[in-house]
C-alpha cells in the first residue's frame, strides 16, 4: 500500500551508532580542511571519528564499545 504522502526518501540519514548517509553529489570537508567529493549514489560519512578512511565510514564503529559509538 502506498503511504498517504509518498515514501520517505531523505537526503541525509543518521544511522544510530553508525555513519551519516548522504544521498547525491556533495563535497565534504574533513577535519584537516581537505575537500572530498562524493563518488557514489550514497556515501557514508564517519561519525565515530575512528575511521582510517576520513571523512568516509570504514565500518570501524562496529568494533567500538557501545559507549564510544555515535
Amino acid at each position: 500500500m502506498t503511504p498517504e504522502h509518498g515514501f520517505e526518501h531523505p537526503d541525509v540519514i543518521i544511522c544510530p551508532g553508525g555513519p551519516l548517509l548522504l544521498r547525491g553529489d556533495h563535497v565534504v570537508e574533513d577535519a584537516d580542511g581537505v575537500a572530498h567529493e562524493t563518488v557514489r549514489p550514497v556515501s557514508a560519512v564517519c561519525r565515530c571519528g575512528k575511521s582510517a578512511d576520513q571523512p568516509w565510514c570504514d565500518g570501524t564503529h562496529k568494533v567500538l564499545a557501545a559507549r564510544d559509538r555515535p
Binding site: 540519514i13 544511522c15 553508525g18 555513519p19 548517509l21 557514489r40 550514497v42 556515501s43 557514508a44 578512511d53 568516509w56 565510514c57 570504514d58 565500518g59
Partner: peptide, 14 residues
C-alpha cells in the same frame, strides 16, 4: 569494498 560496503551494509539492512 572498504568504503563501498560501509555504505552498502547500511542500505542493505535499513
Amino acid at each position: 569494498h572498504v568504503e563501498a560496503d560501509a555504505v552498502h551494509e547500511q542500505l542493505a539492512v535499513r
